[in-house]
Amino acid sequence: MNFRIVKDKLIANVMLILSISSVSFVFLIGIGLYLRAAPLFEEHTLLSLFRGSNWAPSKNQFGFYPFIMGTLSVTLIAIVVALPLCLLTAIYLTEYAKPGIRKVMLPLMNILAGIPPVIYGVWGIFFVVPIVREYIAPQFMEYSSGYTVLTGGVVLAVMIFPILVSIVSEVLSTIPKELKDASLSLGATKWETIKKVVVKRARPGIVAAMVLAVSRAFGETIAVLMVCGNVPVAPTSVFDGGYPLPALIANNFGEMMSIPLYDSALMFAALLLFVIIFLFNLISRIILNRIEHKYSS
């Protein structure tokens, strides 16, 4: 009798400790990365790290500008490509499509989400790179290898399809039917209702989904690394190669032991990714939780 209750309480304490320590992992990762990156700050200011465009670890030059620009450009391209497509798809699925189409599309998105990054990379090399090299780039310039920020952006765009479509669909389906009926009964067409009522009402959720997708694109490593050239120069056109932060870490880790501060610099790159993605995720999750809460009760 008593044994059961003691057991219950004992297990409760073990689980509490487990829960708290695993939650504190969020902070542990941040602190751990900071401590490893700290030596870099003794010789360089944050501003010089961000603005410097020379990357020569053996000469103690750590300019992150090209990598930051590389990351920003592939992410921006990915969002520009994916957002309109996914918005239209999500609106179609929630407002127009027959249930049968929805039943096919949503599992497809789940499978797409499960495809490993390296497979996206292989696909990028054999499908997107040749298209960019043979068909798109020649319209604008003499020659491009096809390994460009545009290629990286397109591969990333496909990678964020699932997250955008599924979250935006979910958000759109929380819009109360009464609201749509009110607009329809005023003589608006269905499309006008969607444009002026549904999308407007769903805007915070759409923004949150976008922010989540951006942070996914931000941190994606291997697929981008395989297709965007890895040139440590800030890209000036979409047909230039780029070198995003995650690729920088992946390509150089393990080789840096002999060069002072190299290791710290890479950890700084990881810290940078962590902080940005942490904030983005936190904000968008809070928005999404609020939407869910508002409509669930």
Partner: peptide, 13 residues
Amino acid sequence: VLFGIPSIVYGAF
């Protein structure tokens, strides 16, 4: 939030 942290960060950590 942890779900959104990229694997490269977990790898580095």
